[in-house]
């Protein structure tokens, strides 16, 4: 997999991710991508309910959240996470990318949307955008 310029937090620690998807494969694939960005997987969840408890437990910098999942869907999980943690940065990652779905997710507090199959370059740019000034390329922190 292509290696990207690693992103780190301002405190020079790796960006921590919570990956939420009912597919083990999708979680593995996303984990590999975020590791190629210099990130660290703080936790994983296979449904919305587990995502809520895992968010509280791990306090990640970014959540990558699927939409169609058993028990509780991603959009409801985003709403509940953002209600309790308004600072949460959630990026929706789903194969179902129609306008109503994207709009609903953004209205509930998601910061961005990526359609599956996920292209690493697109995800990297979105993560940089969502983290904004809270993450910098590792080279930039070393130069300071």
């Amino acid at each position: 997999m292509k290696q990207f310029e690693p992103l780190s937090r301002k405190d020079q620690q790796p960006v921590r991710y919570l990956i939420v998807d009912d597919s083990v494969f999708a979680r593995k694939s996303l984990a590999k991508m975020v590791e190629s960005f210099g990130g660290q997987v703080a936790g994983e969840a296979g449904d919305g309910c587990t995502a809520i408890t895992e968010y509280a437990r791990t306090k990640p910098d970014i959540v990558l959240m699927d939409i169609t999942m058993p028990q509780m869907e991603g959009i409801e999980a985003v709403e509940r996470i953002v209600q309790e943690h308004p600072e949460a940065r959630v990026v929706m990652v789903s194969s179902v990318g129609y306008q109503d779905n994207i709009l609903a997710a953004l209205q509930k507090g998601a910061r961005h949307f990526v359609q599956k199959p996920v292209k690493p370059d697109a995800l990297y740019e979105i993560i940089r955008y969502v983290l904004n000034d809270d993450a910098v390329p590792v080279g930039a922190t070393e130069a300071k």
Partner: peptide, 27 residues
């Protein structure tokens, strides 16, 4: 295979939904 089905059908459903068809997809 399950994840591939999710991607293929999800992408197609997105196109149909953007054409005005309303429906819900299950995992």
């Amino acid at each position: 295979v399950s994840e591939l089905a999710n991607m293929v059908i999800g992408n197609a459903v997105t196109q149909l939904n953007d054409r005005g068809f309303q429906f819900k997809v299950f995992p």
